[in-house]
């Protein structure tokens, strides 16, 4: 079963068409890499999935549930968007950690705010908070950051910050975790430690969409690759085939630089 189905997504900003007729499926437990030059629409596509942008046309299904239909305003109600967003996690290029919270608090915040909406929260407050904290610590540990739990973002390196951001996204247990050029703001040394944890997530069959410029990484870690060019999917297929045996001139040119 496809955990995510994207059908005929289009998006324009003013008169600029950024996404044209984007359709793809993503199977549960698979990693999809999206590659392409800057301005090809990769980031906009991720933002559409996370409801940060609203597509002009098209439909999005998660686990066979229609979560967005541009033609049906009933699927776009503001009150439902919050819940629907939780199907997805998003890791940003610039981390966007909350600077006034420690690494641990960054990971816990959203989860504990959500827990407060539960009617039984008040009665079990202590136990619930304790569980959230334990899970957050386990996630930081998984990111090799257990010893940095009490640090504020400005006390962490870029690579550490990005790993906190990954833990923060994982804390909400999304069905699909999206990465928007997660290493583009990092130097090569720090890039490695972030790619390593993403690779580990792929090995655990976390369903992921990774927008990246790291071709070797995409080839190794992703199951499938989508190559985007000028807002359209120019080529898609199994990762190794796409990288080793590009069909279109555009992709050949892109990979040769």
């Amino acid at each position: 079963m496809a955990v995510l189905r994207v059908e005929n997504i289009e998006k324009s900003f003013g008169s600029t068409r950024v996404l044209k007729d984007i359709s793809f499926d993503l199977e549960e437990g698979q990693a999809l890499a999206i590659i392409g030059s800057s301005g090809s629409g990769k980031t906009t596509l991720l933002r559409c999935l996370n409801f940060l942008e609203r597509p002009d046309t098209g439909r999005i299904f998660v686990k066979d549930e229609l979560i967005f239909d541009a033609a049906d305003p009933a699927t776009q109600l503001e009150k439902d968007v919050r819940r629907k967003r939780l199907h997805f996690g998003l890791v940003f290029q610039n981390f966007n950690l909350f600077p006034q919270y420690t690494a641990l608090q960054n990971v816990m915040l959203a989860k504990s705010l959500l827990a407060r909406e539960d009617e039984n929260y008040k009665a079990n407050k202590k136990a619930v908070e304790k569980e959230i904290e334990e899970k957050a610590m386990a996630l930081l540990d998984k990111m090799n950051l257990a010893d940095r739990a009490g640090y504020y973002p400005h006390q962490l390196s870029g690579g550490q910050q990005q790993r906190v951001a990954i833990a923060r996204a994982l804390a909400l247990e999304p069905d699909i975790l999206c990465f928007d050029e997660p290493t583009s703001a990092l130097d090569p040394e720090l890039t490695g430690e972030v790619l390593k944890v993403i690779r580990e997530l792929a090995e655990e069959h976390m369903t992921m969409i990774i927008v990246t410029h790291e071709m070797a990484f995409a080839r190794d870690v992703a199951d499938n690759i989508i190559f985007m060019n000028k807002g359209v999917i120019a080529e898609q297929g199994p990762a190794k085939e796409i990288i080793d045996n590009p069909q279109t001139e555009r992709l050949k040119a892109f990979l040769s630089v």
Partner: peptide, 12 residues
């Protein structure tokens, strides 16, 4: 980015 990070984490 602070708004967006909050939004994708399901915050109001």
């Amino acid at each position: 980015g602070q708004d967006e990070a909050g939004l994708v984490l399901g915050m109001t």
